[in-house]
Each structure stands twice: as C-alpha cells, then as structure tokens.
Amino acid sequence: MSDEYKVNKSKLSFKGESKTKKKKRKAENPADEEDSNANANADGWVHVKALSDLGGPIFLTFSSDPPTSLSIDDKSTKVIMRPIESDSPSSSSSATSLDQAEPTVVQQVFVATMLPDSNRMTLKASNGRYLSSDKFGIVSADTEAIGMQEEWTAILKPEENGGIALQSHYGKFLSVDEVAAERPGSSLGFQIRADSEVIGFCELFQAKIQAKYRKKAKKTKEVQVATKDYEFEQSRKFQTWNHGRVVVSDQDIRELDKAKKQGRFSEALLDRREKVKSDRYCK
C-alpha cells in the first residue's frame, strides 16, 4: 500500500490555530508534594501524626512485654489485649516490634469515626458493636447504638511517635493494667479498663492507620460537616423503614449544638430520633 493511503492518527488541526504546550502543574507547597510522593509509595499501616488522620480502620497497640493490641474476644463482646504475632512464617519469635506490627486478625481492627466539629470519636469493633465504658470503668463492645458511653475524646501526644490517649465521657482514660495469669504456670496477662484519672505510660497507645487513608486525607480538603447534615445521615442510617423517605426532627438545631458542647451529642441525636419514632434501636 502506498503512503498516500495511510491514515493520519494524529489530532486534527485547523488553519490559524495556535499550538500550545501543556504545562506541568506544580504543587503550591513543596512539602505537600513530598508528603504526596511519600504516601504514594507507602503501604501497610503507618503511625497517626495528627487528629485529622483519624478515620477508617485503626490499629491500637501497647508497649507491653510482649507487645499487645486492643482487640475483642473471638467468641464474646469482651475487650481484651491480644499479643501481637508476626505474620511471617520464617520469624523465629512470635512477638514483633511495635514499629513493624500489623494486625493479623480482624478482631484487632476498629473503625474510627470522628464526630463533627470535635475531637471525639467512636470506635466500631469487628462484631459491629461500639467500644464503650460505663461510669465504673468497665470496657465492652456490646452496644449497637451510639450514646455518650460510646464517645471517646482523642488526645494526641506528638512527642510519643503517634501516642494517643482515649478519654471516656466520664473523664477517665483507657488504661492497660497488668494482672495475674488466669491459669497456673502461664505468664502475666493484661486487662483493659477506663478508670485512670491521669495520662501515663499505661494510658498511651500507639495508633496506626492504613497508609491509603492518610493519602486520601492529604488530597481531600477538610470539609466541616454541618450538624443538620450529620443528623440527616444518622437518621437515614438507623431508620426503621426503607422506602427512601427520611424523617428528621423539626426541633431547633441549636439544641444539638448545645448538646455537642456538653459532650452528649450522640445521646441528643438518639432522643430526637426517638421522638419521631424513626430509630430501630429506640424502644
């Protein structure tokens, strides 16, 4: 076939058009570009560096001997400290360092959700229940709805390489306590409670999130969720019917803003849904 019958595969151009060159878009902040490149190459679990990182799967470890992680029991709603095991078959030791630690079972992973306009969050376990603490400091994961006992205030300690303390609604901190072994001849165990009044070694956890979620947080601009929109989403999530119609309380939205300052935001939302009989958890 002669050259005159060859198809021109290039973009069509017309007489009089100016040729423009595509310019590479430079990042406004060189530091953001470096962080973006680092996150793009990151994989696995990374330390939490800011409260804005909290959201999605979270892995909470503690510097015990051997290292342990916050977890729930396989057959119950009991919250335990599970020894961290290496997922590598070639490893000579079952324990691994906290810097290299990653969850090996789903019970070690919680889903963190930040409440709007605050540093409080909820932690949902793998059984679909929420981590909670009563006024006596007893920690469990057996509630399906969010109330004041399921809210935790996150306090980040930057100097502790991602160290984080969790404060309950009653002002007490989640703490790891060393207890005697349940079976004779076995090593000491660890108990989780929420009755500590100060932040010390036993109250500091190492928090890790998946690298892809930090990358997403870097690229996404921070958007403040309006209280009204948050109430709508919660009503749609917990409503008793599924006909596409969402019923929201017609009471003044300022009541929720007041409840948020008092630390009972989730409880106020539940009360408002109860009055319109739209929540399947309300009796």
Score class of each variant (00 low, 15 high):
residue 159 E to S: 14
residue 64 S to H: 05
residue 50 A to K: 13
residue 214 R to Q: 11
residue 50 A to D: 15
residue 283 K to L: 13
residue 267 E to A: 12
residue 248 V to M: 05
residue 77 T to S: 14
residue 256 L to N: 00
residue 190 F to Q: 09
residue 53 D to F: 04
residue 195 D to T: 09
residue 125 A to I: 08
residue 230 Y to G: 04
residue 205 F to P: 04
residue 68 T to M: 08
residue 241 W to H: 13
residue 64 S to C: 06
residue 86 S to H: 02
residue 159 E to V: 09
residue 236 R to H: 09
residue 136 F to S: 14
residue 209 I to D: 00
residue 276 V to K: 05
residue 144 E to W: 06
residue 207 A to N: 01
residue 145 A to I: 10
residue 25 R to L: 11
residue 168 S to W: 02
residue 143 T to K: 14
residue 159 E to G: 10
residue 123 L to M: 08
residue 115 L to C: 02
residue 249 S to W: 03
residue 53 D to N: 11
residue 154 A to Q: 04
residue 28 E to C: 12
residue 157 K to N: 15
residue 37 N to Q: 13
residue 137 G to Q: 01
residue 48 V to A: 03
residue 94 S to Y: 09
residue 85 E to H: 09
residue 78 K to H: 10
residue 91 S to A: 10
residue 51 L to S: 01
residue 6 K to W: 07
residue 270 L to Q: 12
residue 143 T to F: 10
residue 125 A to K: 04
residue 231 E to F: 07
residue 276 V to N: 06
residue 245 R to K: 15
residue 253 I to S: 13
residue 155 I to N: 09
residue 46 V to K: 03
residue 130 Y to D: 04
residue 215 K to R: 13
residue 244 G to C: 03
residue 194 A to M: 04
residue 129 R to Q: 10
residue 242 N to W: 14
residue 83 P to N: 02
residue 265 F to Y: 14
residue 9 K to M: 08
residue 97 S to Q: 06
residue 208 K to W: 03
residue 207 A to K: 01
residue 22 K to C: 14
residue 78 K to P: 00
residue 191 Q to M: 08
residue 193 R to E: 07
